[in-house]
Design a protein around this nucleic acid. Structure first.
Lengths: 239, 239
DNA sequence: TAGTGGTCTAGACCACAGC
DNA sequence: CTGTGGTCTAGACCACTAT
């Protein structure tokens, strides 16, 4: 045992995790190195195997260790300097900043799927879709154009919603629970209509987030979100 | 018990997780609802409490449930339709696409910190920094300008590295293990020098990723990565 | 006080890897 | 064959919450 912690309320399994993490952080155990077996840790800490197992299993779930039945437990491959970005519901995000969120509904109507849009949804061209265009304001500054196409099978009441009170995001969350999603982020010059809604010059750089969500094994929604590049950024922290 | 699964090799704890997830997915248990207690699940499945506890504890770690000692276990607040983006080492990313990665070193030199850069690093203005500018190519098409400033205290050998063979990312991973990071993604028009290196017109939309990494309780690296907006996008999937 | 979750024990049986 | 991890049991004691 490294330290003699006499009367610490920290659970034993947590102390074992801390010990293992400490050895790795200190560089004494490096990527790929074998870690003491459960039996060895049982003897070292004088606890039962279940307690050791829990500590090691949790660190494995956290990608700190990898285990191979019959072989042993190893320090997991180092994570590269990656960056994880989480993009949330715009209204929540604005309110979380302590600012006022307001939205203007430009369009909410049924529409026939173009060839390109039909392909996105995996539906025949000309199939009925719902289409909405909403501009979101942060303290009265336009910050996002949300151009959304919705599969009526997933959200039949879409056209009856009051999108001043809530966002399509919130409605679809309950009507069509998210199963999976694909997305892309790119930088594009604003076309005329988008520029007008954002009150910026045409061809200004915009941060564009496209997202396609699946629910009940169907494509539920295809959305393109335009943000003025100078005004808006995705940001966050790791670690 | 819902289904009578006679001889399934699925661990019991996993079956309990599947059962709980199924009830939530089917909408029978909604956000905030109380879920059966451990004792109730013990009776329902005819297994020991440790097995039930593991299932419920793991679902709690996965943010599916929340627990309150003395009160009970509840369905966690719904996740919004969020989008998680992981941005990785550009060389790995390109090779993962089966394409060739090549880089051109434009600059690798010591430099004095400007006021703005000193502020970023939390160092006095004029402090020694290392500065590198590298252009990354995917199949000979310029895809990223990596403009990086490095704290010499964290990576004293930075200027001696061969950044044709490896990337600064890879070197810093070992020299200055990532502790935490902040980042932002924005869309900006390319300034002249960046545009030249990317072989695009000045003022073309670029997707710009800025990242500041911390190691050993110091700012280790401040990097700005410019990508041609039409050519490059961050993309991925969820679920 | 009764019921809840939080944790731990000291065993057990199994599948798999390496010698 | 031995040692590894993967899982499960049937108890136990504790802290906390609600009534």
């Amino acid at each position: 045992m490294e330290d003699q912690i006499a009367q610490d309320s920290t659970p034993i399994s947590q102390r074992i995790k801390d010990y293992l993490l400490g050895e790795i952080a200190a560089g004494r155990w490096k990527e790929g190195d074998v870690v003491p077996s459960e039996q060895a840790l049982v003897r070292q800490f004088g606890v039962s195997r279940m307690t050791v197992n829990r500590a090691v299993r949790e660190l494995t779930a956290e990608q700190v260790l990898t285990r191979r039945q019959g072989s042993g437990t190893f320090v997991a491959a180092q994570k590269y300097q990656a960056t994880l970005v989480e993009i949330r519901n715009i209204a929540d995000e604005i309110r979380a900043r302590g600012h006022e969120h307001r939205s203007h509904l430009h369009r909410l109507e049924p529409a026939k799927a173009s060839d390109a849009m039909a392909l996105q949804f995996g539906l025949p061209a000309g199939h009925l879709l719902f289409h909405s265009v909403i501009v979101h304001f942060e303290n009265d500054v336009p910050i996002q154009v949300e151009d959304r196409w919705v599969n009526p099978d997933c959200a039949p009441d879409y056209l009856e919603q009051d999108f001043h009170a809530s966002t399509p995001n919130q409605y679809l969350m309950t009507a069509a629970p998210l199963q999976s999603a694909t997305y892309s982020i790119e930088a594009l010059p604003a076309p005329r209509p988008i520029a007008d809604m954002l009150a910026i010059e045409p061809r200004t750089c915009c941060l564009v987030l496209k997202r396609k969500t699946q629910s009940h094994d169907q494509i539920a929604s295809v959305v393109t979100m335009w943000h003025p590049g100078q005004l808006y950024q995705f940001a966050g922290a790791l670690g």
